[in-house]
Design a protein around this nucleic acid. Structure first.
Lengths: 276, 276
DNA sequence: AAATTGAGTTCCAAATAATGGAATAACAGC
DNA sequence: GCTGTTATTCCATTATTTGGAACTCAATTT
């Protein structure tokens, strides 16, 4: 309710797709922009590179980076370039291990994986992104960080669209207004209008598809999952290659996905108490 | 050399076992102490709990926590308690996916796992802790975050002791002086003297054992791995239950572990160039 | 060898943000 | 409706951050 709305409002500011803007968190906000810059780059950055990207005075930037280094949030590689620091791993490991949503969902994800033989994901909406909390893949030991923890856009993933279908009208419109669409494939939504139309449909049906919208050749069917207090708004999905997962098959799997989602929510009611 | 020593000096300040002290990073340092507090707790904390732990004035603490919330580094659960934020996952996922050390070591870890059938770890020294960068376990899909990213003490793990054996005398003594020993099992080192003696031995032999020092019933054999520029100082290990891994068997495995470590270092020389 | 360029670091008065004590608000239990 | 507990807001004081310029260092060119 109130708590939920304020949560979404705040979240609007965070971890979007495009421009990383300074938030109203003073010194911390400025440092997080830098951390974002370095972690989102696909290679270590030299001081001068960051100088150009951050648009800050040299002296200021230098001290900011020094602080981030000293805290272990950034590291210098052998060539004096800035890379993400390993201390982040420790923080994240704890954040993940303790996450209630994930802990409760885990057995149900495994069940769903067993039933379908395909990869199952759990994701949660944070700001404009879906953060993947878990992944169960039958075949080989999973390279987990490669998927878990990854933030993906909400407008072109099954879990993302399922999650959006849970938002109240007002919050949804605000969120969509802030999106900047990247056309990952020919099927990616590129306007808030068509996306909104699909989300309205999803809200009625109770499940969502990803028709190769994020990655060519990859489809999924997803169902929304939420905690009663709305602190978790997300979804679960069955994902796989288009050649194996026909749209017809995905439509059949809508039911088991929704059932699994229902069981997760029931477990949450039991384990977290009636208020949540 | 110089760069390396300063790296270790700085690292001395970070992520130790015991007291979390304020570093000289101004506002950021104070906020990181709070983030540490919340992520290292084993349950979400209420405002008042943090107030007692942090020993800060109410107003100050409240604003600091608000900033951390707004940045997504912390989150409020349904009961208004502070928990680690999921934005940390996104940072960590990127940090992990790009880590050169891990990328290069990965195939050799798999080989070692295949050869022995036991769990193989890759860890790197950061401050007084070993941060596990990778884990290859043959049997079931791995719950990765549960191990990867975890920071463990350097004085009671095979990888940790192997890593310490790579430090120059001066740096080692400084690091040991800053340790506070927790006796996890009956075999855990509890003094710098006995630890130093063992590390000297490890430096000569080229491999280290964990004789149930961190967790009862768990043994390992480890070999040190380092990059030429010393920006990575760590090790790899074969770990398993004591009933299956006799000390005799571990002694036999010292050779393959050392060979794998050698291959990782050779690959690093090739891939990272002669200076690193 | 001297000069030049590019990259990174240090310095310090002015501008800005953080501090913390006290007052206020929200809420659960009685 | 009161009471104790917990959380939030306020604002003059204080400490930190800022950013332009000067400086160092190493590599490259003249």
């Amino acid at each position: 309710m109130l708590a939920f709305l304020s949560r979404v409002d705040e979240a609007m500011n965070s971890s979007g797709e495009g421009a990383t803007q300074a938030r109203e968190t003073g010194t911390l906000g400025k440092l997080m922009v830098l951390l974002d810059l370095v972690t989102h780059a696909d290679a270590p950055l030299r001081f001068t590179d960051i100088l150009a990207l951050a648009g800050q005075p040299r002296g200021t930037l230098h001290r900011q980076l020094s602080h981030l280094l000293e805290e272990g949030l950034l590291e210098l590689d052998g060539d004096g370039r800035y890379a993400p620091g390993l201390r982040l791993l420790d923080f994240a490991a704890r954040s993940w291990a303790r996450n209630e949503f994930r802990l409760i969902a885990e057995p149900h994800l495994s069940d769903l994986q067993q039933a379908t033989g395909e990869t199952v994901h759990l994701g949660v909406l944070r700001g404009q992104s879906i953060i993947y909390l878990d992944k169960v893949d039958g075949r080989q030991p999973v390279r987990m960080y490669s998927q878990i923890g990854n933030a993906s856009p909400c407008y072109c993933t099954g879990v993302g669209k399922a999650a959006l279908s849970l938002l109240p009208a007002e919050g949804l419109v605000d969120l969509l207004a802030g999106l900047s669409f990247t056309s990952f494939t020919a099927s990616t939504h590129v306007s808030a209008e068509t996306l909104l139309a699909e989300i309205r449909e999803i809200a009625v049906e109770g499940y969502a598809f990803d028709r190769e919208e994020h990655e060519a050749g990859i489809r999924c069917v997803a169902a929304p999952v939420w905690s009663q207090d709305r602190s978790f708004i997300g979804g679960i999905s069955i994902t796989g290659p288009a050649y194996r997962l026909s749209m017809e098959l995905l439509r059949q799997w809508a039911v088991p996905v929704q059932l699994a989602a229902g069981r997760i929510m029931e477990d949450m009611r039991i384990r977290l108490g009636p208020r949540r």
